[in-house]
């Protein structure tokens, strides 16, 4: 059996968190540039200019893109034929601690919902672990800010609400959120499973590659349709009106109970900070 050292995993978590907080993914920058070329008002253009200038500055100076450097969210796909020589959660949290300290990232985690005392090292990370075939450990690493997370929701629709019910929920949610989640946004939608599964599907959906296409043709069509309907809402960059409210819609589904139609909508701001590493 292959062995991966906990130290190596810690370093991968640390390096990834620092990198994603300083450098926006190139495919995202391309979409933002395209969005800017479509805007007609000086106001929305000026906001997209700020966003583009900001990412260039952050990249050059190796500085955080946004002051909300988020909570670390880590999806682990752990191969059955590989062994980590230490505790997985501890190794991840050690990486988070190092990244937020050495990378000068903001520690935004509080210990308790009511006393709001800061944990001072941005731990604990939110960790989701899945056992898979193979001898590798794949980590999907994200820094998720609260502005967009706070505009997300899970709703238990009923089967008769159908696809139209899902579409209405998505459009209403995004319109009501307005400028708060820092549009242009990326929308992850989880449909099916149950209450908590739908939320997991939505979170994984926002971690998909921006330029991938859904392997299910009907979902692929729905992603495109929702993208254009969201943009037709006219919310625009930071809510000031404009052509681009949303850069991409990603929908993940799972089988569900005959009586249920759970829908989760997870919103990601324009500073979408995530990457994958395989050990």
């Amino acid at each position: 059996m292959r062995t991966v050292s906990a130290e190596k995993l810690t370093k991968a978590v640390k390096d990834s968190l620092i990198k994603i907080n300083y450098e926006l993914d190139n495919s995202l920058v391309t979409l933002l540039k395209k969005a800017k070329s479509k805007e007609t008002s000086n106001l929305s253009k000026s906001i997209l200019d700020d966003i583009l200038e900001n990412q260039a500055l952050a990249r050059d100076r190796k500085a955080p893109l946004c002051q909300d450097t988020g909570v670390a969210v880590i999806f682990v796909e752990h191969g059955l034929d590989v062994r980590l020589d230490g505790n997985l959660d501890d190794a991840i949290n050690a990486g988070v601690r190092l990244a937020y300290d050495e990378g000068y990232l903001r520690k935004s985690v509080v210990q308790h919902p009511f006393n709001r005392e800061n944990t001072k090292d941005n731990t604990p990370a939110i960790i989701h672990t899945k056992l898979v075939d193979g001898d590798q450990i794949k980590l999907k690493i994200a820094s998720k800010g609260a502005g967009s997370e706070n505009m997300s929701k899970v709703v238990m629709l009923t089967p008769s609400d159908g696809i139209e019910g899902v579409k209405k929920l998505v459009l209403d949610t995004i319109f009501d959120a307005g400028g708060k989640p820092c549009p242009p946004i990326i929308v992850g939608i989880g449909v099916g499973g149950n209450f908590e599964k739908s939320a997991m599907l939505a979170k994984e959906a926002i971690l998909r590659d921006l330029d991938d296409s859904n392997p299910d043709p009907s979902l692929n069509a729905l992603e495109k349709e929702l993208l254009s309907e969201i943009n037709a809402l006219g919310v625009g960059p930071m809510g000031v009106g404009g052509e681009t409210t949303c850069l991409a819609v990603k929908i993940n589904t799972f089988p569900m109970h005959i009586a249920s139609l759970p829908v989760a909508i997870n919103i990601q701001c324009h500073s979408a900070r995530h990457m994958e590493v395989t050990l």
């Binding site: 500085a63 893109l65 000031v240």
Partner: peptide, 13 residues
């Protein structure tokens, strides 16, 4: 007033 959200590096300058 609003400032551009997510433009943390730019605004700090």
């Amino acid at each position: 007033m609003i400032a551009t959200g997510g433009a943390g590096a730019l605004l700090s300058s």
